[in-house]
Simulated assay, not measured.
Amino acid sequence: MTTPEPEREARALLTRVIEPGDETGGRWIRRFGPCEVAERLSRRAHPLPGVTGTRWEGLCRRAVHANPRQDLAAAHRAGARLVCPGDSEWPAQLDDLGDTRPLALWVRGSPFLRLWALKSVALVGARACTEYGAHLAAGLASGLTERGWVVVSGGAYGIDGAAHRGALAARGATAAVLAGGVDQAYPRGHAELLSRIAEQGLLLSELPPGDHPTASRFILRNRVIAALTRGTVVVEAAHRSGALATARSAQRLGRATIGVPGPVTSALSAGVHELLRGEATLVTDAAEIIELVGGIGELAPERRGPVVPRDLLAPQTARVLAALPGRGTATVEHIAHGAATTNDEATTRLYELRSLGFAERTADGWQLTGPTRTGHLAPTLPGSETVTSGTGIADPAG
């Protein structure tokens, strides 16, 4: 399905006239259609409802100077295309934004946007990030792309750049949603990175070729990142970070909101921790992210500490082991009393412990074996994953 050319040209014109996220403009298009709105702006007709005369005049002035065919040609030269609502490539989840959805998206790169968006995760955070944050972002992005997910971010310095680089390093899929034209390298220091993304992934923008970012456009593009993806992961963010705007948009849209914890003393993690005190979910690796945004059955592996030999003992045997003194020997009667069992049961368990190397019999009674008693490695039991020192005292924490 393809948008008719008159509507495509009208939407191309409107991306240069109406600012991203303008709810009034979105209502006009829903009510009157893009072609009529573009025509009325271009011929400076009577104002559409919802704006002052001054505001209407400013929009008309923009429309008079807009040249959609020139923009479409410039996009073609840059290897980009205009994807409109109604096109087969349009990601339907963007419609969740209602009247603030993009009028269209300028897309640079060969992958099919709609398919990529179906299995994508936003990975965002602070520009002035720490080494810890950059390391985590790159690792998470690499892990996600290795599992077949697309990493979406904003192409900025800091966490965004680390996320894109992590995905590219794993030869995975990544997309950058920009606050300026897809033919413009911004920030300048990311010119090479953005070029690599365009070759291996996708660059997206609501703004036409040659347009430049502004402070408000950075904030407004965050709603696109949130709507396009299955969930938003915030790695590092201060209390006033723009990454938090992406997370809040994700929450409003019913998408998963996810946070990676940092040091509690770090101001750059304060915003993430505030999210985690609310509705966000804490994660530590890519598998845990996929468990939240993936399909049924895509579960992260169970987390548990190492299995020590004592964990594999039967409960009554473990109680007898715990009753053995840390130093010296004890009689069967003393051990049975400590283990709350009979002398016969204690004797049976003691011989079991001797066969496993935990205890030994002496002329004076029973004692822990030398390695267990002195804090060296305890015996290794079949099926144990690791070994540890024993003290004769049962420690539930291992």
Rank of each mutant, 00 (worst) to 15 (best):
S195H: 03
H164M: 11
E199R: 11
A170S: 08
R196C: 14
S266H: 09
P68F: 07
E57Q: 14
E385Y: 14
E206F: 00
W149E: 08
T232E: 02
E302C: 13
E36M: 02
V272H: 01
H164Y: 14
A191K: 09
D364T: 08
C60D: 09
R252H: 12
R310E: 11
M1I: 06
C60P: 10
T348A: 07
L324Q: 00
R373H: 00
P261N: 05
R147P: 10
D344L: 13
R77Y: 07
P34D: 02
S384A: 15
R114Y: 05
T174M: 08
A92H: 10
R40W: 07
L353G: 01
V37A: 00
A175N: 04
G278C: 06
G166V: 00
C60L: 13
A267V: 11
E36L: 08
A245C: 12
A128H: 14
F112C: 10
H190S: 06
L14P: 06
V272C: 00
G305M: 09
A286Q: 03
A138S: 14
T257P: 07
E5W: 04
L41T: 02
D364M: 05
G365C: 00
G161Y: 15
I29C: 05
G242K: 04
E352K: 13
T386G: 14
R127W: 01
L350P: 12
G172Q: 07
V182N: 09
A169L: 06
I159F: 13
T145S: 10
A198S: 09
A185H: 10
A122C: 12
A162L: 05
V307G: 04
P6G: 01
P382S: 09
G172W: 12
A318D: 14
D95N: 05
A138V: 10
G139F: 12
H65Q: 11
R165D: 06
A12C: 01
A141G: 15
E57V: 11
S88K: 15
F32I: 02
L356M: 15
G271E: 01
W116H: 05
Y157P: 06
V233Q: 03
D395Q: 14
W56D: 00
A173E: 11
C60G: 13
I289Q: 08
L118D: 10
G242E: 08
G172F: 04
